[in-house]
């Protein structure tokens, strides 16, 4: 059996794949956080809860309404996006005039409510969610065995990340968003309905989180706690990348996921903290983050 640095290559590739999967979720979630933060100046602590909610909506749709994975991939983000729109209209929008930290505290409270409620109803244990039959099984790539569902997750998250990036960089709606991030008042003075833009942006960010949640459901179990522990790691990812750049958030997400996977191969004890350690190093060397601008 071939080895690299004394590690059997299938194990190495396997961990890189797991890293890439984790990285896919980091990228999707930090992308959503960055989009929301850019315009609303709110760190959406509820992002993890919205990811969890996406997974649970898929789970409930399947078990109570018999709606399959593919439809859930569309319906769950719409449902969670709609919930987010209500949250923005009724609560977040009241906080735009005050210190940004209150937005963080409000969304933290919302995350606790969602998480606590689901734990109350479903218990802390995870619920299984089967991958769709079209994506079950795997292929032998010669150097490793690739479960098809995992390959799909990487591809789907890449497509969504690139799609979101194109939406922001190449469309008129994206131009409104970028301009409003710089000077929302002027954009509104030009006749753009900026309050609506804020609402839609929060909805979009939450929908991205929910999409990630549905993708995650067959890999990790659907559990009330799946979101918050993840979101704290994503915060570290965001600090490393800096929130100034959408592309930066995506790249940082994937790279840190892979680094985490590699750590699992070479020094497994440190794998749960490696991203935090990288964050600490980046703070020492480049406080504004790799893609960030000093504010």
């Amino acid at each position: 059996m071939s080895t690299i640095f004394g590690i059997p290559t299938p194990a190495l590739y396997g961990q890189i794949l797991i890293g890439l999967i984790n990285g896919s979720f980091y990228a999707l979630l930090s992308l959503g956080l960055a989009v929301i933060f850019g315009l609303l100046r709110v760190i959406n602590f509820a992002h993890g809860a919205q990811y969890m909610l996406g997974a649970f909506v898929a789970y409930l749709l399947l078990n109570y309404l018999g709606i399959n994975y593919w439809l859930a991939l569309i319906v769950a983000p719409l449902v969670v996006g709609a919930v987010a729109v209500v949250i923005e209209r009724t609560m977040l929008s009241r906080l735009y005039g005050v210190d940004h930290l209150y937005g963080l505290l409000l969304t933290f409270g919302l995350a606790l409510i969602l998480e606590g409620a689901f734990r109350h109803w479903f218990g802390a244990a995870g619920q299984p969610y089967a991958a769709p039959s079209q994506l079950s099984g795997g292929v032998n790539l010669g150097f490793m065995f690739l479960p098809i569902y995992r390959g799909w997750v990487v591809v789907a998250s890449l497509v969504i990340c690139i799609g979101t990036w194109l939406l922001i960089e190449k469309t008129q709606l994206g131009a409104y968003l970028r301009a409003a991030t710089e000077n929302a008042t002027l954009v509104q003075a030009f006749g753009v309905n900026v309050p609506l833009l804020l609402t839609l942006t929060y909805g979009l960010g939450a929908a991205l989180a929910a999409f990630a949640g549905v993708l995650a459901a067959p890999i990790y179990q659907v559990s009330p706690l799946m979101g918050t522990n993840l979101i704290i790691v994503v915060f570290a990812v965001v600090v490393v990348g800096g929130m100034g750049s959408i592309l930066g958030a995506i790249i940082t997400g994937y790279v840190l996921g892979i680094l985490e996977g590699l750590t699992k191969v070479f020094y497994p004890e440190a794998s749960s903290i490696v991203i935090f350690v990288i964050m600490a190093i980046v703070l020492l060397v480049r406080p504004a983050g790799l893609f960030g601008r000093e504010e």
């Binding site: 008042t185 509104q188 003075a189 030009f190 006749g191 753009v192 309905n193 900026v194 309050p195």
Partner: peptide, 8 residues
Amino acid sequence: LPLHKVAQ
């Protein structure tokens, strides 16, 4: 009018 309606 709200701000964006003035431009409109």
